[in-house]
Amino acid sequence: MEYFAIIIGAIFVNNIVLAQFLGICPFLGVSNKVETSLGMGAAVTFVMAIASVVVYLIQYHILVPLEIQYMQTIVFILVIASLVQMVEIMLKKLSPALYQALGIFLPLITTNCAVLGVAIILVQKEYSLLESVVFSVSSAIGFSLALVLFAGLRERLDFEDVPKSMKGVPIALVTAGILAMAFMGFSGLV
């Protein structure tokens, strides 16, 4: 039941993009096509899942015993940056097909604040290891869901007659606002 609440909460109620405003850059940047946003979503899910385990181990087995929790920000961002690099190198060797699909998104993930944000939140909420993994994977699914939905809407927007000064980012933001409103309907679910 607890896990169920975490999953629903992270995907719908506190959607990381539409309710917490994390990962807005890729949300606005790579959401022109459904296909690319699926790729981005998959890459983020992959990295976030690994990152949550690594971050958990570092927080409770290195930072807390040494009482240097204040180094959290520096350590986490370095871990995430190197993790992304490692994933990239390993994918290239082990699964060229997957690398082809996700490769171009990987470097972008280091500066995706959703990854660091989730890492910090799961430490703040004092989740256990399993809860951390469940939470970060659900958050990533929430991210992908928002991205794919938004891309679908934007593909259609291209064919609409939008006032000249609203073209591009402004109309995309209004769309995102309406999508966020729709997601507010989930509030109170958990």
């Binding site: 000064s165 402004p170 109309i171 995102a176 606002g177 966020a180 409103m181 507010m184």
Partner: peptide, 22 residues
């Protein structure tokens, strides 16, 4: 209240952008 919540943030920013661009 909508403007304090998430959707209002997106919508307010959109219109500010339009005004800024104009």
């Amino acid at each position: 209240l909508l403007f304090v919540l998430a959707p209002g943030a997106f919508i307010a920013l959109a219109y500010l952008l339009v005004i800024f661009n104009k």
